[in-house]
């Protein structure tokens, strides 16, 4: 097994194990750790494909930001409870069948778009910079406005909850 295929296998194993843990585990902190493993796996997949900037952004934004935010939210929301926080689930055959059906449909509809396994190449961040500051400048600025709107929405939602 070459180093590249070992990296791909590691990324896939991290993603699948993390996602299965995040879906099936009950205790919130374990779910967060499993989600962290999944997000690290996605970053490893980006790195395998050569998108190094995306891999670093994934670790910084998701693992360092979103995951910590989720842990803080869970701790803040449930600190009054005496027992260890657990996620309630209702595992049924219908949900599993719908999820499996959608996954199979996606696979069958997209399989013609994929050719052979791609060979990883180096894809630098300068490509991304010239793309974002060139033809996609409007989308880039719109994303900034969107993030600002999300921040304002968060402030309004939390302030509304305090006043009620």
């Amino acid at each position: 097994m070459t180093a590249q295929s070992a990296g791909l296998a590691l990324a896939i194993a991290l993603m699948l194990a993390g996602a299965i843990g995040a879906v099936l585990l009950k205790e919130v902190m374990r779910v967060m750790i499993a989600l962290g493993a999944f997000l690290f796996g996605v970053a490893a997949m980006y790195a395998y494909l050569g998108y190094s900037f995306l891999a670093i952004a994934q670790v910084f934004v998701y693992v360092g930001g979103v995951l910590v935010l989720m842990v803080f939210a869970v701790m803040t929301a449930r600190r009054a409870d005496g027992e260890r926080p657990a996620i309630v689930s209702r595992h049924d055959v219908g949900s599993a069948a719908v999820a499996a059906g959608v996954g199979a449909m996606l696979f069958l509809s997209l399989r013609t778009a994929f050719g052979d396994t791609s060979v990883p190449v180096s894809r630098s961040a300068s490509d991304l910079a010239s793309e974002l500051l060139g033809p996609r400048l409007v989308a880039f600025e719109a994303a900034g406005v969107f993030l600002l709107a999300a921040l304002v929405a968060v402030a309004v939602i939390l302030k509304g909850g305090e006043e009620r």
Partner: peptide, 27 residues
């Protein structure tokens, strides 16, 4: 990202759209 790598699409485009998805997920 996999589709972009397999189809030989411009790496800047793939990464730009990936960053947009990242921002959307964070928001």
């Amino acid at each position: 990202a996999s589709l972009g790598a397999a189809s030989g699409a411009s790496s800047g485009s793939v990464q730009a759209i990936g960053v947009m998805v990242l921002l959307l997920a964070a928001a």
